[in-house]
Computed example of a mutant assay.
Amino acid sequence: MAWRLLSSKTLISLFHSSLSPSPSPFPNPIWSSLLFSSPFSTSFISTKTPRKLKPRKKKKKESPRTKLVQHESNRIHHFEHLVQRDSFLRFVTKSKIFLSKRPEHVLRLDDAGKLHHELGFPRGRKVVRSIEKHPRIFQTYRHTDGKMWFGFTDLVEELLEEENRIMDEMEVDRVTRVRKLLMMSKDKRIPLSKIYHTRSLFGIPEDFRDRVSKFPDYFRVVVENDGRRVLELVNWDPALAVSQLEKDFVLDEDKVKKAFTFPMKHGKCLDLDEDDARKLRLLSSLPLVSPYSDGSGLDLWTVEAEKYRVGLLHEFLSLTLEKRASIHHIVEFKEEFSLTKHTYQMLLKQPRTFYLAGTEMNWVVFLRDAYDEDGVLIHRDPQVVFNEKLYRYAEML
């Protein structure tokens, strides 16, 4: 072969020329491999980085949008089921409200497809898919204009008449609930828009803003400079300024005392006598600040202020029809009730009384004592009975 004809001097000169910065005289890769290949193998040398020196991958934090509030071991499944049921029936509840305000209770499908927020169906999905899930509630038909429309079935039209009768019969009760909300508020006034947005929570009728004029001894509507209409309390009623917690305290004092805990920092050994120890336990358990007192002047980070806010939220939930509310309902009244951004953590610290279900970003708080062991409301408002009937029809195929 040709490479054997090369003398040793020639090889040496070629080697030195390869070390110079000038271009290699042997562009052919075969020559390079012959000249510079090593007779020794280096395959035994490990090129992997030791595991202990490798940078650890950071675990992705679960989003508050999907992370559940309760650990599996602490989960109360009938409360979680109610949250899931509400999510499944969101299209039914929101569409019922929206269609009820429209002439003839109908809507063109082309228009409905653009109203995912108002009707409560997933964005990007076809509204027809949600309609087909509830054939006893909604129906579609082709109008004389050739367009497809959807509306209520005859069954739901009859149910709506029943619901209107309930609203009329419960009018006095709803007025009382609004009066108590105003009495708990910081300035004894709440924007009408906030009451309207949370009307389903308290069973307040759609036309409550028009009904207000029937009760001049209770309410006054004030129009502010920005055009916002605000509902103000006219007369304070001491008979209404009694919270549900105070009523329960009269019936079962020990039960209410154990319902709340407010840990206080103190020395491990205070050498307290029995009477002083009892007073300390009372101070750290029972919320003594009435939700109908003025709590706006309390220092935000004192035990008294926290007792006030906990008692206020307990009374707020007691006024709701289903003794529960979502974060969106509570945030609606943040300013009026002097609530802080730590409301979520505050409620979590009271597991004997409150149960938080759902996710950290979209949670629902329940009054535990208002439900029996099977998760059924102990005292059901006529509107709640009606809603449950509607939900049963909505889940039928």
Rank of each mutant, 00 (worst) to 15 (best):
R165N: 11
E232V: 06
D86Q: 13
F386K: 07
D294C: 08
L300R: 10
K60N: 13
H81W: 07
D294G: 00
K60T: 12
F40V: 15
M1E: 14
N387K: 07
S22C: 08
G227P: 05
Y196H: 13
A305I: 04
F260T: 04
K334M: 11
T10G: 01
R211Y: 02
S318R: 05
S213W: 10
K114V: 03
K57H: 03
H342S: 15
R281V: 11
R309I: 05
V256Q: 11
F215P: 00
F262P: 06
V364A: 02
P21W: 06
V303A: 12
L119S: 08
F152L: 01
I378V: 15
K334Y: 01
T176V: 12
S33I: 07
K114Y: 06
V310C: 06
L319Y: 01
P191C: 09
E306Q: 13
K180A: 07
S13M: 13
K48V: 10
E335P: 00
L288R: 07
I378A: 00
L339M: 11
K147S: 09
E171S: 08
P287K: 01
K54S: 12
I137S: 01
V128T: 14
H77V: 15
L312W: 06
M148P: 01
F26K: 04
E169W: 07
L155T: 14
V92S: 02
S37D: 06
G120Y: 04
V256F: 00
D299N: 11
I330E: 02
L182S: 04
S243V: 06
M396D: 13
L319A: 04
R174E: 05
S43H: 11
D369M: 03
V83R: 07
D294E: 12
G120S: 05
L397Q: 08
L240N: 08
R123H: 10
R179Q: 15
L283N: 10
E62T: 14
K265L: 12
P135H: 02
T10R: 12
V172A: 14
K67V: 04
R309N: 01
E253N: 04
F40W: 09
F88C: 03
N235S: 14
M148F: 10
I97H: 11
T49W: 10
L272G: 04
P382H: 00
L53E: 11
F208W: 12
P122T: 02
S318M: 13
R85E: 13
K133I: 07
L14E: 08
E322A: 11
K389E: 14
R211P: 01
S8A: 14
A241T: 09
Q383L: 15
S213M: 11
K101L: 13
K349G: 06
Y355G: 04
P55R: 10
N235Q: 15
F121W: 07
L317W: 05
H117A: 12
A2V: 11
D168G: 01
F88K: 13
R174D: 00
R281W: 03
R177Y: 07
